[in-house]
Design a protein around this nucleic acid. Structure first.
Lengths: 365, 365
DNA sequence: CTGAAAGCGCTTACAG
DNA sequence: CTGAAAGCGCTTACAG
């Protein structure tokens, strides 16, 4: 009887290269490379045998070597404040999806809303020779030289959501004005007439745009804007709650609230539920952002969807177009403005009038 | 008067290399390289002048070239089902944070729970010469050869959350058994006695562990396990709802449900709210995962927090240790088990007995 | 249809 | 303390 013992020395086992394949087939690395890249001047027979040998030797292309030679990496750099914020997680999802479909990988860099980290991130990505960068600017950033550097190096740059027009690069944003207009108009269509707005810090562009959309929607429907019904919160659950409490205590209280974003709306909802007008839709409520929780709270929250994954996809698609352009053609930057989507749910649905305590009858026995 | 016109030809402007710096200073690329890498045998004066020239010429190291030469990339590959799931977004956040602190970049690859995509992702990362891979296995995956390939190539592999012991690689998981035990014990402490469990596909380790924790907690408190009260769902809202509906129709119905994760719990909650036992806590409910929505639904959901960002950080830290090890030392795989945290909320809080319709009195006038 | 050779930009053992 | 040379693994213009 015999024992066969196979010892594989991983330590000294270096990875298969095209030279190993060439040696195996008594040909050259050039031929192997061409065969693997399906070069037209290589015979079918050669391609076949090269592929078989590659398989047999478990060959994997070394993309680092390929990148160095080709001068491109097939890597897309993404710079965002944090992957831990669902909005950005969703955008990354869209970016990576499109990137993968085009043979690109995604390097992720988080800034944590810090300017220094953002500068560092851009620098690292440039060193890594990424073929393009998609970014959402940190809240703290006021100097944009690092983004100009990207532009100067002729590397496609696309900004999403938090974009700066003055940089002259392509951008993907959602139409906040229109989203707010739709939200307000929706409440009007539900026969709400005294519609309040809980806004955010007015110096932030998107909040300002939403306020404008609210005001214009009222005007479009000949509803007078009542300054008393506009409050400025701090974009949080607690702030939404206290703003709503104030609004509901007004002598001439609102019959609906449009909140600047979903967390504010959530706080407002708490205040509404604790008020005498706590039945779903009795005081209409619309948020903005379609956060993960908004479909699941009670009542479910009507809100504006920002098409977050779509935003990422669009940004990646713009990159795919930009990379085609030879550097000679200076094309004008693209500006994609996504359509907001109204997601109508219970929080803005008027309760059926007349019939009282319908509730019990809806219960499945 | 004179006009100075600076014309910079970006098209033909190729990036500065160490050779450009060397030419500028009448020295060689070798010296420049050593100076930039702070090699001890280079004089302080030379280092100084090289750094100045590098700055002046706006030099950025080409990491691709460096990687090819050094045989390592300082890139960590991360393979997850989807960045759009808050759990994974949070884990990536933790991974990237630690990676960055050690000079590593993160390449992200999403599998969308598809086996084929997972295989492709691993292959791409290997081709990209990542220095290590952190992954969470797709639900669909039952063949693990692609992970063995990573191991065989001697590339550090760390699995998190959805890990497989048989692969013999380092893992970071939360103690699912203990979390389920805590969840069940919590229900028992709230005087629930007929506690049902909606599990997930039993071949998935974490779901199996949670089932065990549930069973053992009952046993520890001398409550007989009733097979009728254990159902196997598909880990979704709809599945949770229909499983709960079934459970509630049993002749001897449960008075509490421990759901295998929060979406299942959410569906179960819908079923409970439509049942005759719809008052908060009347039928106790606990989920698992502390999803974004769980704090905000009504009633708020008691659940088990998995310390997601911490999980990512731990995985990245293990990598940082593994990479130190020379390939000669075959160290045993590490197994980090994180402590689950019980987050007690309304869904498992017993309604006050005796007093009826207390509700109205809690409303602030 | 295939091969020999050069080169992408870096790092480092070897020599001085 | 610095330089000349080789090489990481690939791709491709050029030659045959």
């Amino acid at each position: 009887m015999r024992f066969y013992i196979y010892v594989i020395d991983y330590v000294n086992m270096s990875r298969t290269t095209i030279h190993d394949i060439a040696k195996e087939l008594n040909t050259t690395a050039a031929t192997v490379s061409r065969a693997l890249n399906d070069h037209p001047s290589i015979s079918a027979a050669t391609k076949q045998s090269v592929r078989e040998a590659a398989q047999k030797l478990n060959y994997q292309q070394n993309r680092v070597a390929s990148s160095l030679r080709l001068g491109r990496t097939n890597v897309l750099g993404v710079v965002i404040p944090s992957a831990d914020i669902s909005f950005f997680g969703s955008v990354i999802h869209g970016i990576e999806k499109v990137a993968k479909a085009h043979g690109y990988n995604v390097i992720l860099f988080q800034t944590n809303e810090q300017y220094e980290d953002e500068v560092q991130g851009i620098k690292t990505l440039l060193q890594s020779n990424v073929d393009g960068i998609i970014a959402s600017i940190s809240k703290e950033t006021t100097n944009y030289d690092h983004f100009r550097e990207v532009k100067d190096r002729n590397i496609p740059l696309i900004l999403f959501d938090r974009a700066i027009d003055s940089l002259g690069v392509s951008t993907v944003v959602i139409d906040d004005y229109k989203g707010a207009f739709m939200a307000t108009e929706h409440l009007i269509s539900q026969d709400y007439t005294r519609i309040a707005h809980i806004s955010g810090p007015p110096h932030i562009q998107i909040f300002h745009d939403r306020l404008r959309g609210y005001v214009d929607a009222l005007a479009a429907h000949h509803i007078k804007v009542d300054e008393d019904l506009i409050t400025y919160g701090k974009v949080s659950i607690d702030s939404g709650r206290s703003c709503a409490e104030q609004l509901l205590q007004l002598p001439n209280r609102p019959d609906a609230i449009f909140a600047v974003e979903d967390f504010t709306a959530l706080g407002a909802l708490q205040a509404i539920k604790e008020s005498p007008w706590h039945r779903p839709g009795e005081i209409g409520l619309v948020g903005f952002a379609n956060e993960a929780f908004s479909a699941y709270i009670t009542p479910s929250l009507t809100t504006i969807d920002q098409q977050t994954a779509h935003m990422g996809e669009e940004a990646a698609k713009i990159f795919m177009e930009l990379r085609q352009n030879t550097t000679v053609t200076e094309t004008a930057p693209q500006k994609v403005v996504l359509e907001p989507l109204l997601i109508a749910r219970q929080s803005s649905t008027r309760p059926k009038p007349k019939k009282k305590s319908l509730k019990a009858s809806t219960i499945v026995p």
